[in-house]
C-alpha cells in the first residue's frame, strides 16, 4: 500500500517538475544565468511549492501523527557545521554545470538522453560515497 501511495506521490512530484519546466536543464541554466539569458520562471516553481508546503505542513503537523507512520520524521538540528556549508557548495557547482538536480535528473532517465545516462550513475556513485564517508563522521543524517 505504501509502495503505491509513494508511487503516486512520486508521479505527482515528477509531473510537477515537468509542468514547471524545472526538469529542463536549459531552463534551469537560464534561471541561473543572471547576467545573460535570464529566465525567471523557476522562481515561480519554488514560490508555488513553498507556498503550498508552508500552509500544508502546518495543517498536517497539527494532526499529531501521520496516517501510515509512527511519527513525523522532522529534522531537528539548528547548528551550522562544515557539512551544511561544503555539501550545498559542491551540489551547487554540479547543478550549475549540468542543470540537473536529483529530482529532475530522475524524471529525465526514461527519455534516455546521452548526458542523462552519464549523469545518473555518477550521481548515484556520489550519493553512495557521501553516505559511506558520512557513516564515519559525527554528523547525524537528518533529512
Amino acid at each position: 500500500m505504501s509502495f503505491l501511495i509513494n508511487l503516486a506521490l512520486g508521479l505527482l512530484f515528477g509531473v510537477g517538475l515537468l509542468v514547471s519546466g524545472m526538469s529542463d536543464p536549459a531552463k534551469v541554466l537560464n534561471f541561473l544565468d543572471l547576467a545573460g539569458t535570464w529566465d525567471a520562471s523557476l522562481a515561480f516553481v519554488m514560490g508555488g511549492a513553498v507556498l503550498v508546503a508552508f500552509v500544508g505542513y502546518r495543517l498536517v503537523l497539527a494532526r499529531g501523527e501521520p496516517i501510515a507512520g509512527d511519527r513525523f520524521h522532522l529534522p531537528t538540528r539548528n547548528d551550522i557545521d562544515a557539512r551544511i556549508l561544503a555539501g550545498p557548495a559542491l551540489f551547487g557547482i554540479g547543478w550549475g554545470l549540468g542543470g540537473f538536480c536529483p529530482g529532475p535528473a530522475l524524471t529525465a532517465l526514461g527519455l534516455g538522453a546521452t548526458g542523462t545516462l552519464a549523469f545518473i550513475p555518477a550521481m548515484i556513485l556520489g550519493m553512495w560515497a557521501a553516505r559511506l564517508l558520512g557513516e564515519g563522521s559525527a554528523s547525524p543524517r537528518t533529512v
Partner: peptide
C-alpha cells in the same frame, strides 16, 4: 555530465538535502 553528477550526488547527500 559525469563531473556534474558526482558533485550533485555527493554534495546533496553530504549537505543533507538538495
Amino acid at each position: 555530465m559525469l563531473g556534474a553528477g558526482l558533485l550533485v550526488g555527493f554534495g546533496s547527500v553530504w549537505g543533507n538535502g538538495c
